[in-house]
Structure formats: structure tokens, C-alpha cells
Write a protein that binds this DNA or RNA. Sequence first.
DNA 1: CTTATATAGTTCAAGCGATAAACTAACTTG
DNA 2: CAAGTTAGTTTATCGCTTGAACTATATAAG
Lengths: 408, 408
Amino acid sequence: MASTAPATAPLDAGTPGNMADVRRSNLALVLGRVVQSPAGFHLTRAQLAAATGLTKASVSSIVLDLLDAGILREVGLSRQGERGRPGVGLELNPSRGVMGMEINVDYIAAGVTSLSGELVVKEVRERDNRDSASGAVMSALAALALGVRQAASALGVDVLGGGLAVPGLVEAGSSTVTVAPNLGWVDTKLDVARLLPGVPLGVSLFNEANAAALAELAHSPHGRDFLFISGEVGVGGGLVLNSELFTGPEGNAGEVGHIVVDPEGTPCSCGGTGCLETIAGQDAIFSAAGITVKGRTRTESMADLLGALAAGSPAALTAVQRAGRALGVAVASASRVVNVRAVVLGGHFAVLDQWLHGPLLESLAKYAPGALPPEHVITSTVGDAGALLGAAGSVVRSLVEAPYRLQA
Amino acid sequence: MASTAPATAPLDAGTPGNMADVRRSNLALVLGRVVQSPAGFHLTRAQLAAATGLTKASVSSIVLDLLDAGILREVGLSRQGERGRPGVGLELNPSRGVMGMEINVDYIAAGVTSLSGELVVKEVRERDNRDSASGAVMSALAALALGVRQAASALGVDVLGGGLAVPGLVEAGSSTVTVAPNLGWVDTKLDVARLLPGVPLGVSLFNEANAAALAELAHSPHGRDFLFISGEVGVGGGLVLNSELFTGPEGNAGEVGHIVVDPEGTPCSCGGTGCLETIAGQDAIFSAAGITVKGRTRTESMADLLGALAAGSPAALTAVQRAGRALGVAVASASRVVNVRAVVLGGHFAVLDQWLHGPLLESLAKYAPGALPPEHVITSTVGDAGALLGAAGSVVRSLVEAPYRLQA
DNA sequence: CTTATATAGTTCAAGCGATAAACTAACTTG
DNA sequence: CAAGTTAGTTTATCGCTTGAACTATATAAG
């Protein structure tokens, strides 16, 4: 598994630049190449110099810093059997890792990946978090994270930092959840730091769909610009522009679940009317398909729906096709606003793809012909673990952008 | 009149950084402050050092470069009457200017502003460009631009570069018009360089609404993030994020005219269905209001519409209110995708504001309550000249971001 | 009128990072 | 084993920011 795509750190606009910024930028450039390189393939200093455009002298100096910081490791010789002195292979230090954590409606999870993105340990604990106080959930997660961290440590992997994904709106760059409807949280400040006491890179907070979008980016066959749409109880979204997660000035860009797809439609939990979620969210589909939700888990209800679809139930087929058409309208509108080049479907949209896909493309062709090629509408390549992996990968991204943070 | 807001140039991600980049960044930082400062107020080196965080020594060196390049000029002493040695005021060299040009359906225009954004000369020539070959239009514009350039020169203003605004989609960073429906152009490559032969900063091409959005930014009471929506024959848009025009990977982001506002609606010229433009474009409003278009200029038709509205014509009122509600739906959807914090209405939307405003806000409250405060929906502060001024201002922006280009 | 004080701007040595060229190291080929 | 080839380090140089010292020019106080 590859890791998150890197983005070298630019000089901060609005603040003076000095030579330390140049160093940071070039450090990020070199480290980014290493992170990008395929697993098992070890770049040498000379190859890094050629790839980045830096001189060999600069790369040597930069690599020295990264070795000192324990981020990189030398690994044997490469290029054996060819002429000339063989280079020394470099790889991300496998004894350093990052943790991804997730709070969802009916479970909490924590997992550690290496810096190159390979999953080392993962644990999921079922837990009904609906209307649970955030403090109680965080305590349970802290306990889970401690266990996973110790398990990773036993395997020789030291955790440098973590990311937490929650199903709700997150204020940009803060640790406050503005609103998480399915958890019943409003303006909830989370003490994320206590999940991983003492880690040098800290813990950051993400919206679930945004984190999953980052995970898609890491495995990206879809390039640097795409819209990830995740079907859960609600409909979430993550917008990736130029290989960066775009969250907007207030942190809630990419919320495609509340694009208006039917002005004559029904009220939405957000207070709006005719939002995508009122047609394509899980509750909406189950209800339109005549699937029982009460007293059953979501997994069971989804199994019922798949059974009904396989059996050719007209109600189920109609419900899913309607969701597909609504998705088409939403994608049409979104693609006008930000010129998205690809759409990645996750959550139940991936599961239902064989029934959704046709109506979605038809609807997209009707409302925004030529906006994006049909083959650029694809399903998730990461799957369920997306939010967890994306949250973990975000720590690697921040490490690449500011490698110096480890050396302090 | 203030000029475009500056944005300091970051190091290019993906390329090695060196000390020249630091210089460029700091040059942009200093020059940006000068551009931002209110007209008539002259910053000194010491004030620039305090404002930017650079040392006095660095600022002195940077200012020297900018003086040598002829971008800045020293102007008398400031801070008289206070203790201590008075500073030397600095201002943008008033003998340097930039040209804005515009090709529209029924006219061409060219104007020169100083680097600080004051209009020095402007000329508009009526000309029916509908289905006119691009070469012929460009020849006419080149002649007009030559005259305006000479007039500016006679007033002591030397033109450094130019921007051209056209009513059509522009491929990002190129000089190709992908499609301009009202001009009848498709995939048209424009030889923009010949409009201003020999200028050091060249000539760049913009979509009309995008250029107008840049002009709004310069006069911005709306902050760093807003969506500009321009009502013309079509409905154009310009998206400003973090004080930068956001055009998307292919250059056609912000095209709010083709957001789906009525899935049951009528076909659009773009091939889609129920786009905003089919309800809020000029033709749609005139037609719904029963206003004659054939054989009349757009100005005359608009006067008729305003007359009908003043007279209380139900058809006219209904048509405009419907357009307002459609705008509300489009803004609701757009604000979910990119989290816009303000909306600026231009073109006929500004003219019709007193009838549009209420329905727009009602509709926005219905479809996206709380997405943005009502007082953040405002009308253009620049007016008709927006595209021209924005195109000119874009040259100042590029000068700020890469001041070295003049010194070569 | 002289001296103290305050502020603006320049000069100079130091530090740091990238660069290019020379150099050392380690391997393959003939 | 010598020649050729590629990897990586060393060294001198350049450019830019910084901080401190210094010069320049004003007002305020005695």
C-alpha cells in the first residue's frame, strides 16, 4: 500500500522568507519523493537529485538531516550488476508509525500504519456512540488507542502522531466538532491530545469523508483533483484539489450531501430542502425501498436491501435508481462550481454501484454533458478503512511538509 | 480607487528552492504591502519593515531593487511634526501603467490604469462582434489598444502589460477560448501578444466574470473569499478563494450559470437541463417578462424591463422573482461545495437587485439555512467597468508576484 | 543655543543554504 | 589490472537575511 501523496511546503505567504524556509521546502521536496516512491523500491541520493532537480551535494546534506531525525534509513545497495558504484538505497524508517483513529455511530477504531502506509495493527471496538457524551467516547477511544500503541510498540513501531476522523463537521484546523448529527454533538471541543500523550506530531481532527478522501488520494488512480462522495447515514464529501484536501475558509467545503437536487423536495436534517441526503442517504433509501431499520443494525438493513435488489424488488430498484439520479444532479452542479475531473464513490454508494452507476451517468449526461468523462466516475479503491487510513496518512503529510518538527 | 489585493508568491512546490526564491518572496511581500496601502498614504521603509516582519536592512535592499526597476518611487518626507528623523515616503511609480481590454458582444474596450489602479485613459468602441471572425475582432481591438496606449504615453504613463477579458471559457493559463457562445467562437486561439507589442509583462486572457471578480476583490469589502455572479446574456461566475481567483484544473470553475436549479427545467445552451442560466439569464428574464428583444439593443430591452417593473407588471415581477429564487438555489448549492462566505452580484443582477434581493434571500434560507449571513449577499461595488479593471489589475498582481520580471 | 532623545536608514560582519567543480569511493568491463 | 562509469563527499563561492553598530535628521528639554 502506498502512502499519502506529498505536497511540498511553500513559503508562507505574508511572512518573511529566509533560508530556513528554503531548507524546509527542499527537505519536503526530497522526503516527498521518497514517500511517493513505490513500496519496496529504494531510491538513492543520486536518483533523488535527478528527480528533484537539486544538486547531489544538497541532497546529501538533506538526507543526512532526515537520517539524523530518524525519518529515513539506509538500506543495502541498489543497482547491483550495472556499471559504476552502486548507490545506497533509502527508505522510510520502518520503526516509525502513525495512528489513525475513528469515532463512528456504532464503533470506535484505532490502527497504526508505518510511514509508508502499511497497516501494522488495527483494532475495532463495537460501541453505540449515539447521544453518548463526547468525554465518555473519548475515554473509550483513549483506552483503545493506548492498547494499539503498545501493540505497535511491541512490533517495534513507535507512533509519531495521529489523526482522528469523526462523522461531523470540523472547524478548519481546530479540534472542535461544529455539529455531528448522528452522534448528537454540537460545538464539541475534543481533547484530542490525550489520545496519544507525548507524541511529537500531535493529533489532528478530521471530518470522516475528508479523511477518506485523503486515503483515496494516496491510492489515487484519479489524479490530483477529484470529489469523493461517501454514502453513510448522511452523505459526506471530500474535495481534493491539486493533491490537497480543500476544506474552505470555515472548514465545511465539499459538503455535497446538502447540494439542492430537488427544489420541490422534502426537508433535510440540515434545515434545508431537497438536499442530496434526503434522497441518497441510507435512511432515505431504506425508507423508499421499504426496508425495516428499527431494531436492526445498519449492516443487517443493508443486507436486506441487497437481497431485495437481487430479488428484483421494484421498490428497492426505484429507490436506488432515484438516489443515482440525485447523485448525478449533485455531481453536475458541483462540477460547475469547482471543475472536478473525477468522482469517487464510497460507503454504500460503492456497495450499490451496480444499480446506481447507470442512473448516475444518465443523469450527469442530462444535466452537465461533457463536464467530466463517464469513466472518471469510479468507486472507492480503499473501502471501509478509508477514514482510518486517511487520518493516519494525514500525519505523514504533515511530517513531509515540516520534517523539522521531529528534530526539535 | 485601490488596486488589486496582493498575494505574496510562494515557492513553487515541486521545484527546488534557493535563495533567489526567498528574494522573490520577500520582494512580493514588500511590494504587496505598498500596493495594499490606501491611495495617498505613503509607507516608509521603517513602516514596511514593521509591517512585514523583515529587518530594516532587508527592506532597504529590497526597496532599492524596486526603485531600480522603476516600480517604486520616493516621494518627499513623511511623519513631519513628530520626534526623530522623518522617513522617506514610497509610492508606486505613477509613470507605469497596465492595460485592461475587453471584447464583448456589442463593443470592444481598452483602458489604462496606473499601478495603483487609477484609470488614466479609457475608450469604448461599439462593434457587433456576434459571429465575427476572431481575427477581425482582434485587429480592431489592436488598433484601439494602440490608440489608448499612445494616449497614456502622452500623459506620461508607460504600459507594462495587459489583460484581456472575453465572454467565454478560457483554458487555464493559456490564450485559447474554449467556447464563447455569444461570439460564436469555439476552441479559438487568440494572438493576444500582438495587442501590446513589446510590453515586458505580456498580455494574459481571462473570462469576463473572472476578471470582474478580481476587480471586486480589489475593492473588496467582502474579504478574501466570495463568489461573484454576473448576469449578462449568460450567467457567469468568478470564485475567489483566499484572495486568489480559483479557476480549477481546467479553468472553468466558478461557472455557476450552469448549476442545476430545476431538474424538471428546460434545456440550456450548454446542453444541460434546468441550469441557472435558463431562468436567470437575460434572454430568459426578457422572455418570461414579455419584453421584446428582436430589433432592439440590450440596453433598450433592459430599460423596458425596468419600466415594466416600476409600473408593477405582474409578468415582469414574476420573471425577476423567479430568477431571484433560482439564484438562491444556486448559491445554496455552491456554498455547500466550496463554503463561500459572501456573494457579490453584478451585471443585470445588480441592476435588478431591489426586486431580486428578497426572493434570493428567502430561497437561500429555505435551501441552505445558515450557510452564509444575509448581509453577505451584496451587489457589485465596481459596476460595468469590472471586467476591464480586473483584467488590468491582474497584471499588477502578476507584477507583485514576480517583480523580477521587470529587471531582466 | 546646546544637549538629550527618538526615529530612519545604511553599513558591516556573520551565518546559512544552494551550487558547481573537484575529488574520493566502489563497482563493471575488457 | 587499467579504464570507464556511476555514487557520494568535500571545498570554495555566491547570495540573502540578520543583528548590531553606526550615521543622519528630526523634536524636546534645559
